[in-house]
Amino acid sequence: MTLSSSLLNAFAPTGTLRASINLGNPILAHRISTGISTGTDSGEPGGVSVDIARELASRLGVPVAFTSFDRAAESVEAVTNENADIGFFAIDPLRGAGIAFTAPYVLIEGCYLVRDASPLTRNEDVDREGNRIMVGKGSAYDLFLTREIKHAQIVRTESSQAVVEAFVRDNLEVAAGVKQQLESDAARTSGLRLLDGRFMVIQQAMGLPKRRGDEAARHLREFVEDVKRSGFVADALARHGIKGASVAPAA
């Protein structure tokens, strides 16, 4: 399929598809270790979202470059301000002000973590006076809970990866985040448990700056539907050993 010059320019005005990658969601992206001890990990990003970005660049016939962020809010800002051409985000109305979203390509569970001794046993018990919920600042959970929580207090830490550590350190009542991240962190810290079920389903989608126009937004939506339908997303989840996330249904 031959793409118009206007469409290519909308996606890659610099000649390279610049992809914003959120490392704060370990289900979809991570940093590949270089194996070199330098004090910082300077490895390239890897994961499901990186695979999808490479596939889009291949279909557009342009190279791809990645900019990685530890927080979702920073990744959103990069795309909104057109410092990146595409990104991978949980769909949220607030983020939609400057970003044109596709339908979701992956669904992920958001869960609560408490101490073993906590009296909390159900998700419905969390939103009560006196409970403090630790979340990653600017994450999908932060945005969702900010709208939904009426009685409990939301406390924010710098990133999703730091939630459990901050929750334990500050002796809070609840931590909120990606189920797999909470499970992994809890496995390294005794005396913690997840509440049964989920408090939200995160709809992970692709997005590009709204200023890039309707043609580009439509093409990106069609691309996402194709990689879901073809099995590309399912294969990427399997290849990276991801459990607890599922391919979103067709739009």
Results as ranks from 00 to 15, higher is better:
residue 66 F to I: 04
residue 41 D to H: 06
residue 36 I to E: 14
residue 28 L to F: 11
residue 39 G to W: 12
residue 59 R to H: 12
residue 57 A to V: 12
residue 59 R to Y: 07
residue 21 I to G: 11
residue 55 E to D: 11
residue 24 G to Q: 00
residue 21 I to H: 01
residue 28 L to C: 06
residue 30 H to S: 15
residue 18 R to G: 04
residue 36 I to N: 12
residue 19 A to T: 02
residue 72 A to D: 13
residue 20 S to G: 10
residue 26 P to W: 00
residue 64 V to R: 04
residue 24 G to A: 03
residue 23 L to Q: 04
residue 68 S to I: 06
residue 27 I to Q: 00
residue 34 T to R: 14
residue 70 D to V: 09
residue 43 G to W: 05
residue 67 T to H: 09
residue 64 V to Q: 06
residue 36 I to C: 03
residue 26 P to Q: 03
residue 29 A to L: 08
residue 51 D to W: 03
residue 61 G to M: 10
residue 37 S to G: 13
residue 53 A to L: 12
residue 41 D to N: 15
residue 43 G to E: 02
residue 30 H to P: 08
residue 26 P to I: 06
residue 63 P to M: 07
residue 53 A to K: 05
residue 52 I to V: 00
residue 66 F to D: 13
residue 46 G to C: 09
residue 61 G to Y: 06
residue 33 S to E: 08
residue 33 S to C: 07
residue 21 I to E: 01
residue 45 P to M: 08
residue 31 R to T: 14
residue 48 V to W: 01
residue 19 A to P: 08
residue 23 L to Y: 01
residue 43 G to I: 00
residue 26 P to M: 10
residue 29 A to H: 02
residue 43 G to N: 09
residue 69 F to E: 12
residue 70 D to G: 11
residue 54 R to N: 05
residue 72 A to Y: 01
residue 30 H to R: 15
residue 46 G to H: 00
residue 62 V to S: 05
residue 57 A to S: 12
residue 21 I to F: 09
residue 49 S to I: 14
residue 18 R to T: 11
residue 27 I to L: 12
residue 36 I to H: 10
residue 60 L to N: 03
residue 64 V to P: 00
residue 19 A to N: 12
residue 48 V to T: 02
residue 45 P to G: 05
residue 49 S to D: 10
residue 68 S to D: 06
residue 18 R to M: 12
residue 33 S to R: 14
residue 43 G to V: 04
residue 27 I to H: 07
residue 46 G to P: 12
residue 23 L to G: 05
residue 67 T to C: 11
residue 31 R to F: 05
residue 45 P to E: 03
residue 19 A to Q: 01
residue 18 R to S: 11
residue 60 L to Q: 08
residue 58 S to E: 13
